[in-house]
């Protein structure tokens, strides 16, 4: 009797999320699958079922192919960058004698800033006639087309994202650092370990749970990049920064091909799920080697 009552209570407490998920996630997801097999633009009174045509078209599309590779390029740049930066911030803040929270809030602020605003500031900063470029041209003779060159455009977006997420991840890592038992360090000090050994052999392995979280989050970010790319490069030059989201947006809202865009969204989901699954397994393997799993 008590079990049944508890069950009911459990369902009751979970119901807001379940209802929300049903209306705003499961329903639309099913409809998105349906749309992916049509040529509907959501406006025309009639449409046809086109079978797998949207998917085959997407596979052959240079825009979609670019999205696939661009995501992994961003991953290779963004994940190490944001991990090193957030780890550095966390370690430095942890070493402060006081005002740790204040510093952490300072680093966290970019996470709250609008992607549109930070992109526009970056755009102004990197423009041909900005003081930075004038200085580079006049002093070193360097004339760099920051957003018009594939490598630098990719790097700029990656750096902006790293700047934005560093504070957030540093917050998670700081709490991870705080949870490491001081006695371990004291014992290590008695054993005469160097600072480098202390970091690589003690801190990093013991930080695994927090690092696992930030790494999974940062890998996830690379599959969802949109605002910065939309504002800064529009996916260019030559698709060099064309993310999945840019491609979906372009097809759905510029070309009015909702069915095709849904097919791309599904493909993006599959790629994301598989990638995150593989990454998770690799990270868990690392954790296992350090006795965490």
């Amino acid at each position: 009797m008590i079990d049944k009552q508890n069950n009911r209570l459990g369902w009751l407490f979970a119901s807001p999320y379940l209802i929300y998920g049903l209306i705003f996630f499961i329903g639309p997801l099913i409809w998105s699958f349906y749309l992916a097999f049509t040529n509907w633009d959501l406006i025309a009174p009639t449409y046809d079922f086109v079978g797998l045509k949207n998917f085959t078209k997407a596979l052959a599309s240079p825009g979609v192919q670019a999205s696939f590779w661009v995501t992994y390029k961003f991953m290779m740049l963004f994940v190490p960058l944001v991990t090193v930066m957030s780890l550095a911030v966390a370690v430095l803040v942890q070493g402060l004698p006081k005002f740790k929270s204040l510093y952490l809030i300072g680093f966290f602020l970019p996470y709250l800033s609008s992607g549109v605003v930070s992109s526009l500031i970056a755009k102004g900063f990197l423009s041909y006639n900005s003081p930075v470029n004038n200085f580079l041209r006049n002093t070193f003779g360097l004339d760099i087309d920051w957003l018009g060159t594939p490598i630098s455009a990719l790097a700029i977006v990656g750096i902006i994202l790293a700047w934005k997420f560093t504070g957030y991840y540093a917050l998670i890592l700081t709490s991870g650092l705080e949870s490491i038992d001081r006695e371990v360090y004291e014992a290590a000090a008695i054993d005469g370990v160097t600072n480098r050994q202390r970091f690589w052999r003690i801190t990093l392995p013991l930080l695994y749970p927090a690092l696992y979280t930030t790494l999974i989050l940062s890998f996830g970010v690379t599959f969802g990049i949109f605002t910065e790319v939309y504002q800064l490069t529009g996916g260019g030059p030559n698709y060099a920064t064309n993310t999945w989201q840019m491609e979906i947006y372009s097809q759905a809202f510029k070309n009015l091909q909702a069915g095709y865009a849904s097919a791309i969204a599904i493909m993006a989901s599959v790629v994301t799920f598989i990638s995150i699954f593989v990454i998770r397994k690799l990270l868990e393997g690392w954790g296992k080697r350090n006795g965490w799993v």
Binding site: L29, L42, F226, I248, A265
Partner: peptide, 18 residues
Amino acid sequence: MKKKLSLILALTMVFSVL
């Protein structure tokens, strides 16, 4: 991951809820 889901959600929400 969350962002990805959000995009699919947003796309389908716009299309279906409206």
